[in-house]
Design a protein around this nucleic acid. Structure first.
Lengths: 336, 336
DNA sequence: CTGAAAGCGCTTACAG
DNA sequence: CTGAAAGCGCTTACAG
């Protein structure tokens, strides 16, 4: 790399290393003229400070970590986009880690991050995260952690989420108003508050409209697309099959579409579908897919902004922020 | 974070710092018994080495950078997935930078990376990158850089790409065989070899089938979805409008779908469409979209593997790898 | 097999 | 306003 360091720069300028360092950091201790000379020489030699030396000395890395279950998913891609936008503008670097919905991977990632590589962590938990994980340790040590989307159900955690209960409620209500009597809820495993809230919204809507709760209508899916598709097919073929499906995540809606093609059920005639989803092509699908769409980009931005406030200690005292953004329900043909 | 350092660990063990350090690195100089004691204590105290001290001393960061134009795009999301998979397995960290298709952003990102923050760079260039950019400096300094997907047209660059000429050729041929006489090519700005090769494949197919080349059929698009959609509408409304469209990137195909909806053209009856794309929902669209699909995940994996070979100096001499993977042409209803 | 010492490239309290 | 010196937490050539 550019092997220009402060030593070399100071020799070139006939100044001490300390003066050069201070000049570059625009210290009040240095004269304007010297600063100018130093800046010009640094520019000329294309001086790039060694980030490790600086981080070691100052005990800050100007880096944050983003830990997410997967990336080939429009929600997370958009959220990262929002995070990066804020981070780059703040001069921070972003390390990304994928847990592949695997609690073991998530654990080892978090352990690694304890080494001080980053100044803060943005995390969306994998769905089967057990409560009381080692993140609590981190947080107790005063380390800035912000949860987004998939968050734990604990009062002490700063979170950025959407109105999941509301989304589940309104989506279910929409299906009921379109005539559905038996609505299957496709859920993911685990008990993160996101998962629980969406399902509670669903249950509340059923109750409001006097539809009896049927446990067969709650379908617990896995991480494997193929087996999910088989599972959904099975559900759609059983006696007393659902006439409506609320999918808690995008990929299960896609599996539902494929399942319907295979067993020749027509959406929305035979089955109405609505899904939590950030799919860009929702309105181009056949039929167009009704969605509850979280503002993923904004969630990323909010989460990053909150994290930086915490890192910069602009969040005083024991204040815990719980930011909730609104998602929008967009009715399209799949649920008419 | 965990403020356990070597000093603390060595005090706890009654050993010198150097011995503890060597034990942790499994040095041959240390007895098996001591290693065991050290490991156990490190585990017990949850010792995490300071990555900055280590990187400063060893002059390697165990980190690579991925620089891409955008992330909310299934191709890049899948490629990152492949990169992460290889990197995590190698124990490397991945810094992500988005250039937002902006040459200025790209330039400043690259300059930052010269500070030695990373051991290597994986980059997919923004479309209007001018040739002869400062990456050449980096490479000349022996710094490992691998280009993927959007690569420069220079012999000295290690690249991982797909058979773009072939893809453009076959896609065009497919449209011709489906009866198209006037085929519009939706291109992006700039002259990266990816862009040029795809278009050359298109031109070669026209020539083979004796279709005269019409410059009005080459439509140069921008980065703005809305203005692209307007542009495509205009092209589809002109006298002697195209009866087939080959889109060089996914988002232009989506804009084409929207444009057709607005001006009431039916795909494939009035217009046949085929696109380079990694869209998961291609087969669920209305109509299902014919695609030339690059193996994005594998491209990411290959690119990362190549980079690690270069970092670990397993690529000897002046060897420059140019890896080309095959994309698959999948005909669906939009081009029948 | 173990340890003392130098040094990676910065930053910063302190002296002048 | 400038500079000498200590130190961040590691690693490693060297001595014993």
């Amino acid at each position: 790399m550019s092997s220009i360091n402060l030593k070399r720069l100071s020799e070139e300028l006939g100044l001490s290393i300390s003066s050069v360092s201070k000049a570059l950091r625009d210290s009040y201790e240095i004269s304007a003229e010297t600063k100018k000379r130093v800046m010009e020489m640094a520019e000329k030699l294309n001086y790039q400070p060694n980030p490790f030396a600086s981080s070691l000395r100052r005990k800050k890395s100007l880096t944050v970590a983003v830990v997410i279950p997967e990336i080939a998913n429009n929600y997370f891609a958009l959220a990262i986009n929002g995070i990066q936008t804020v981070a780059q503008q703040k001069g921070y670097h972003v390390l990304t880690y994928l847990t592949h919905e695997n609690a073991k991977d998530q654990e080892s990632t978090i352990r690694h991050l304890q080494g001080g590589r980053v100044d803060g962590v943005l995390i969306s938990l994998c769905s089967d995260t057990s409560t009381g994980n080692q993140l609590t340790e981190l947080q107790n040590a005063g380390f800035p952690v912000v949860f987004f989307d998939r968050v734990p159900d604990a009062p002490g955690c700063p979170t950025v989420t959407t109105d999941d209960f509301d989304g589940g409620f309104k989506a279910t209500e929409q299906l009921i108003k379109s005539g559905c009597k038996k609505i299957a809820y496709l859920r993911v495993s685990g008990y993160l508050s996101t998962t629980v809230n969406r399902m509670n919204g669903y249950l509340a809507a059923l109750q409001k409209y006097g539809i009896p709760h049927d446990t067969k209508m709650i379908v617990e899916c896995s991480n494997d697309d193929d087996s999910n598709q088989e599972l959904i097919k099975k559900v759609l073929k059983m006696r007393g099959r659902p006439d409506g499906i609320l999918s808690s995540v995008e990929k299960l809606a896609i599996s539902t579409y494929y399942a319907c093609t295979e067993i020749n059920l027509k959406i929305p005639k035979d089955l109405k579908v609505i899904s939590f989803s950030c799919l860009r092509t929702a309105s181009l699908l056949s039929p167009s897919l009704s969605t509850i769409t979280p503002p993923a980009f904004e969630i990323g931005k909010e989460a990053a902004s909150l994290l930086f406030r915490m890192i910069e200690k602009k969040v005083y005292g024991n204040r815990i922020d719980k930011i909730v953004l609104n998602s929008s329900l967009i009715q399209r043909n799949s649920s008419r």
